[in-house]
Each structure stands twice: as C-alpha cells, then as structure tokens.
Amino acid sequence: MDDPQPTIDTDLVRRLVDAQFPRWRDLPISPVASGGWDNRTFHLGDEMTVRLPSAAAYSLQVEKEQRWLPKLAPFLPLPIPTPLAMGEPGEGYPWRWSVYRWIEGETAKNARIADLGAFALSLADFLVALRGIDPADGPAPGRHNFHRGGPLTVYDGQVRQAITALEDRIDAQAATTVWETALAATWSGSPVWFHGDVASGNLLVKDGSLSAVIDFGTSGVGDPSCDLAITWTFLEGTSREAFRARVVVDDATWARGRGWALWKALITVAGHDANQAEAERQRSVIDEVLAEHQRWA
C-alpha cells in the first residue's frame, strides 16, 4: 500500500517557514497560479517561492537542485532557479523542501510567444550551452529523475503495453516501429548535462520571448535525447525545423528523442488519469511522431 501523501497547503508552508526560517515570518504566503504537480509551489513575499515535493519519489530531487543549480547557472544564456535555502522535514511534512528566488514570466503558450521560430532558437541555444557544461560528478540517471538520460529499455514494457491497449486507436504497427528504432539507436557518446523535462510548463516567457527555464528535478548527466521531446509536444512547422538545425545532434539521437516523446504520449493516452483535453493533445503528439518518422525513414 502506498504511504498517504501529506496535505500541502498554505497553512503547512506557513508553519514550516515560521519554524525553520523565522526571518521570513512576516512575509505573506500564497499558492502560485500554476503550482505544478510533482511539486507544490507557493509565493513567499514578492521575491521568493517555496517548493515542496508532493511525493517521496520527487523528494530525491531537492538536494540535487540545491547542489547543482548554482553551478550550472553561470554557464547558461537564460536564468534558471536560484536556491536560497533548504528546509528540513517538520510539521508533519516528511521531506526536504526548497526556497527559491522568484523568476518573473509566464509558462509558454503560443499566444504568449511573439515569434515561435525565435523561441525555438533560444531554447536550442540553451540546451547546447547546457550540454557544454563540464559533467564531472554530475548525477547519473536513476530513481531521482525517473531514468531520464538512461537507456529507453527501462520503459520498454510500459510502451508495449500501451501500444497494445491503444491498438484500435492508433497505428500500432507504426508506433512499434518507431519505438524499436529508438531502442536500436543506442547512446554511445560521453555523458552530458540534460534538463530532462523540457516542456511548455517549464519554459517561461516574458515580453513574447523565452525568458527562463525552470524545474531541473529530472536533470542529470547522460544521453540528452530526452530534451528533444519538445520538438513534437510544442514546436511545429518552421519553428521545429529551426530547432532541429540549431540543436545539432545526430540521427540516432533524434530517433531516441522520438522514443522519449512517444513513451510519454502513449502512457498518458493509455492511462486513466489524464483529462480529455490532455489525452487529445498527447494523441496529436503520437500522430506527429509517427508522421515524422515516416518522412525521415
């Protein structure tokens, strides 16, 4: 049986902050509008946020971000979260948690972006810079990041089950071909830094342009192909081609990137937790991945 999850609300955050960081006792606390699912995020005054893992699996990421984000930030062309303090378990909450500096911006949506092509180029430049940072002693793929950066084989069973469950709704044969092509395109390069969850909700926009990249919980050093999923989940048309040209990876890495995008889309559509809108969006991702594989085959 899974352990019961703690109730994470403003009252809990107030008690934690007051007990562990009394210097911030007088600052107001309120939920962030898009507070996330893996972690719950709250405003602390006007210039800080409090971020609490929502389950034990995500708590492994706290110390990693505290250690590595300050080391990565100087080498990146866009702002990333700045840890200010790390909280300890307390007040009935069982895990460590973080206080960050607030970053202005809104999560990426097409209506907020002035030029999707320029956005794609900025994102590609960020990922290239991230890959160029010295990976020595960086966190290898594992439980802390749900094996991002590792071999896709870890999700082979999930994918094949999802394809079987969806065989009357998708082109199961084509999906199997894309997946097996991704499995065969094994990673043989030296480990590099990757973000691990390059999704619209983790990309901030200000004044129409990409302004920051947040949530490095699934980051690590290894195969960077997982960072390519944004190609099919958000970019389109000429912006997709601009991103492809700028991010500079080989065909095998693109094949694995399609595998990562397909994995997430398949398990979302086959699962029972996604709402209809999200299931439809992920079904579109499946179609895009299959169509592109056919074009490049």
Rank of each mutant, 00 (worst) to 15 (best):
P4E: 06
Q5W: 04
V13S: 00
R14S: 09
V17Y: 08
L27E: 14
P28D: 06
S30N: 03
G35P: 09
W37Y: 05
D38E: 10
D38I: 04
N39I: 09
R40W: 01
F42R: 03
F42E: 08
H43T: 00
L44G: 00
D46V: 13
T49Q: 05
Y58V: 02
S59H: 12
L60I: 07
E63K: 13
K64F: 02
E65L: 04
R67D: 03
A73W: 05
P77V: 00
P81N: 14
L84F: 13
L84R: 15
A85T: 13
M86G: 08
M86A: 15
G87V: 10
E88F: 01
P94S: 04
S98G: 06
I103D: 07
E104D: 15
G105I: 00
K109Q: 14
K109W: 11
A111R: 14
I113G: 12
L116F: 07
D125E: 13
V128N: 10
I133Y: 03
D134S: 14
G142D: 01
H144K: 15
H147C: 06
G149N: 12
L152W: 12
T153W: 00
V154D: 12
D156I: 05
V159G: 09
I163P: 09
T164K: 14
T164G: 14
A165L: 13
A165G: 10
R169G: 02
I170F: 09
I170P: 01
A172G: 15
A174T: 13
T181A: 06
A184Y: 04
W187A: 08
P191I: 03
P191V: 01
V192N: 08
H195Y: 03
S200F: 11
N202C: 10
N202K: 03
K206E: 00
S211V: 03
S211Q: 13
D215T: 12
V221R: 06
V221D: 11
D223R: 01
D223P: 03
C226G: 05
D227I: 10
L228I: 02
L228T: 04
F243Y: 12
F243T: 07
V247S: 08
D251L: 04
A252H: 04
R258Q: 07
G259T: 05
G259M: 07
W260I: 02
W263M: 11
A265P: 01
L266F: 11
L266K: 07
G271Y: 03
A274W: 07
A277F: 08
E278C: 00
A279S: 12
R281G: 08
V289F: 10
L290F: 12
E292S: 15
Q294K: 15
